[in-house]
Simulated scan of single mutants.
Amino acid sequence: MEFVFITLFPEMIQNACSVSILGRAAQEGLISVRCVNPRDYATDRHRSVDDTTCGGGAGMVLKPQTYLAALDRARELVPGALVAAMTPVGEQLQQERVCGLAKSGRDLIFLCGHYEGFDERILMEADLRLSIGDFVLTGGELPALCVMDAVARFIPGVLGKQVSAEEDSFHYSLLEYPQYTRPVEYHGKTVPEVLLSGDHAKIGQWRRKEALRATLRHRPELLRQMQWQKGDGRLFLALKEEKKENSQAEKD
Rank of each mutant, 00 (worst) to 15 (best):
E2M: 01
L108N: 04
Y172V: 05
H114D: 07
N15I: 12
R129W: 13
K244M: 08
G140V: 11
T190D: 03
D149C: 01
E91F: 11
L30W: 06
M12T: 06
V49W: 00
L30N: 07
G23M: 11
A214R: 10
W206I: 10
G160V: 09
I21R: 06
M12V: 08
E11N: 13
F110N: 00
F154C: 07
M1I: 06
T181W: 09
G140I: 11
F135Q: 03
H114M: 12
P88V: 02
G55P: 13
R219T: 03
H46Q: 14
R208D: 02
A69P: 05
E210T: 03
M1W: 03
G139N: 14
L123P: 05
M86C: 11
F154M: 05
A25Y: 06
L175I: 01
C17W: 02
R34L: 07
M124C: 11
L128V: 10
V194Y: 03
N37A: 11
D168R: 00
F118P: 09
S197R: 00
E250M: 09
L101W: 13
L196M: 05
S247P: 01
G59N: 04
F154P: 04
T66Q: 09
P10N: 07
I109F: 06
D51H: 00
D51N: 01
E241S: 08
R129A: 14
E11K: 13
C99W: 01
G231S: 07
R75D: 10
R208I: 09
G59C: 04
T7N: 01
H171W: 10
C54N: 00
I132G: 01
L195R: 06
E250Q: 12
H46S: 09
S48N: 12
M148V: 04
G133C: 03
D127M: 01
L212R: 06
R121I: 09
H171M: 15
C99P: 00
L101I: 05
R47Y: 10
A211S: 15
E120C: 12
F118N: 05
C17D: 06
I122P: 02
Q94T: 10
S164H: 04
V19G: 03
I13L: 12
C17V: 15
V61Q: 09
Q248D: 08
G100L: 05
K202I: 08
A152E: 01
H46G: 09
L108V: 15
R217T: 13
A150N: 02
F236R: 11
N37D: 15
S169R: 07
C35W: 03
A238E: 15
T181A: 10
